[in-house]
């Protein structure tokens, strides 16, 4: 991993992704998608890999779910679950952390499971995609904000005085 300065003088981290795990993640997505849904699935996997190369694994996950609309139109639920495992592997492969990818991967897996169960549960209960989407958005936003606030407190960037500077 190295660091460079952008043209505006901003501090950037240019990460060299761990090549072997990422490669395995790419291959896994193509193979799993192809195995589940045939040639169309393999093509969806290649599209996902391309999106990951261009815009990163997070965007690739979104793109992959877009491809599901076409290739997994009427696929059984278990195939979706297996494909999610492959996409999760792609995400974890790209994660870097000084403490090792383990804790972060666990957090990612737990968060994904929680959000997925929440969205599925609300959808099952209400039958409304809109309600499930709003619930998912609100809960995810609250979790992200809570982590942000905790970080401010942990680093001593907030004071008791609401008008005071950190």
């Amino acid at each position: 991993m190295s660091r460079s300065r952008s043209s505006e003088g901003r501090l950037d981290v240019v990460g060299e992704r761990p090549s072997v795990p990422v490669g395995i993640g790419y291959v896994g997505v193509v193979v799993v998608f192809g195995a589940l849904w045939g040639a169309g699935g393999a093509l969806a996997g290649l599209t996902t890999v391309a999106a990951s190369v261009v815009a990163g694994p997070v965007v690739a996950v979104a793109v992959a779910h877009g491809t599901f609309l076409v290739v997994a139109h009427s696929a059984p639920g278990w195939t979706i679950a297996v494909s999610e495992v492959a996409l999760g592997g792609l995400l974890v492969a790209g994660l870097r952390h000084q403490h090792g990818p383990g804790p972060t991967a666990v957090v990612a897996a737990v968060a994904f499971a929680a959000f997925a169960v929440l969205a599925a549960g609300v959808y099952d209960a209400t039958g409304s995609v809109m309600t499930a989407a709003v619930t998912l958005s609100v809960v995810a936003g609250l979790v992200a904000y809570a982590i942000h606030r905790y970080e401010l407190v942990r680093l001593g960037l907030v004071t008791d005085d609401p008008e005071g500077e950190p």
Partner: peptide, 29 residues
């Protein structure tokens, strides 16, 4: 498009963001 499967994609992205926040929090601390 009324397809709940796409919510799984959104959940995946949200989980990735939360994981990155967690990793950043540990690094900053």
């Amino acid at each position: 498009v009324d397809r709940p499967v796409l919510l799984l994609g959104a959940a995946g992205v949200a989980a990735a963001v939360v994981a990155r926040q967690y990793a950043a929090l540990r690094s900053f601390a």
